[in-house]
Amino acid sequence: MPATFAARTCNAGTRACSLSKYAATSREMQVALNLDRGRSILKPISTAIPRTLTRLSTYLSFFFLLLPAHMFAQVYGSGNHQVTVVVSPISLLQVSGGAVSFNVTTANVVAGQDEMSVSNSASQLLWGTNSGTQKITAQTSLGSPLFTLKLLAVSPTQGTAASEFALSTTPTDLLLNIGRSSGTCTLQYTAVALASQGTGTDNHTITFTIQAQ
């Protein structure tokens, strides 16, 4: 709320003075007070500036003292080096389910048919590769088997299953077009024996290989 002041106005020529009241703003109050004390209005301002600067410098000194020391660290030099990272082509292959055993008995035979067959789908093939287009082949260690052992990749989660084939010592495609991924498929073995071939036993070691297509 503006204060009410009494102002004295003097005429230099007549030296007559009059007193009047008016509501002053804060700035006008300062001026009025200064006038009232008989001092120049410029004098307090001219002395206030250095005082303000002094306070400012004090504050700034405290401010800089509070800043972390490292902010004022000097850079005396710099260096750099190169880091080389390499991810080699990695391919992994695993068979789950253990050994497979077939036993052709009378229960698997139809009278009048020479061919006797029995299937096994108890094992799975698991793979993973970070390389481009790959394929998986299969081969047997048995050079002269008595009976035929066929293999088919069923329901592969990646890639394309090749047609069912008879295992031999020559690697034959089992899965094609495997990209950078991991996947599984069921290994469906089918043993085919002819009654005319008689009885016997074949022991196979099947080797699966994942390689570039």
Binding site: A111, L146, A191, H204, F208, T209
Partner: peptide
């Protein structure tokens, strides 16, 4: 050469196939 060698992996499985004496008539 080393990278190519690592790009290939193998796994093995044993499969035994036995055919017993069979007699069937109908």
């Amino acid at each position: 050469i080393t990278e190519s060698a690592f790009a290939q992996a193998t796994a093995t499985q044993s499969v035994t196939l036995a055919v017993n004496a069979v007699y069937k008539i109908s």
